[in-house]
Simulated assay, not measured.
Amino acid sequence: MQTPISLQIRISWPSGHLTASLDDTPTTQALAETLPFVSTARTWGKEVYFETGVSVSRETGAREVVEPGTVAFWTDGDALALPYGPTPISRGDECRLASPCNVLGRLDGDPGLLATVRDGDPVRVELLDA
């Protein structure tokens, strides 16, 4: 039996889109079952996040400080969190999330494109065809 290495998704908003490669984790599997979905973007410093309708537990590898372009799942808000720079609670240039988040994978392109997402923008998340 072959285990999937990763899942590719596309995240689209009115002024752009990015793809992401997600690792095979329990949170990724739960998220995949809900795709495609549309949500409403929220911004917090240089982070975009949006509710997914998925509720999962915090995984053992959850982290609060991550690299720009990390795809994280914020269990406290049932939301995907996409940091691309410092947030209001960061120390220096780090990407510090609101609380430890499940790390799902990485954005494939330039995470700086997330700067074009406006608070309240519709966001669509869908599976990329294999």
Rank of each mutant, 00 (worst) to 15 (best):
P4E: 15
P4A: 15
I5E: 14
S6C: 11
S6N: 13
L7W: 08
Q8F: 01
R10F: 03
R10Y: 02
S12D: 12
S12W: 03
S15I: 01
G16Y: 02
H17G: 04
L18Y: 05
D23T: 04
D24P: 00
T25M: 04
T25E: 02
P26I: 05
Q29N: 12
A30L: 14
L31H: 11
P36H: 04
P36F: 05
P36D: 09
V38C: 11
S39E: 12
A41C: 05
R42Y: 12
R42F: 06
W44K: 08
W44I: 05
G45M: 14
G45K: 13
V48D: 13
F50E: 09
F50N: 05
F50A: 09
V54D: 15
S55V: 01
V56P: 00
S57H: 07
S57K: 07
S57P: 01
R58N: 03
R58W: 01
E59I: 03
A62R: 06
A62V: 02
R63K: 15
E64Q: 15
E64M: 12
P68C: 07
P68Q: 07
T70V: 06
T70E: 08
V71L: 11
A72Q: 12
A72R: 05
W74P: 00
W74E: 00
T75E: 13
T75W: 11
D76N: 03
A79L: 12
L80R: 04
L80P: 00
P83H: 06
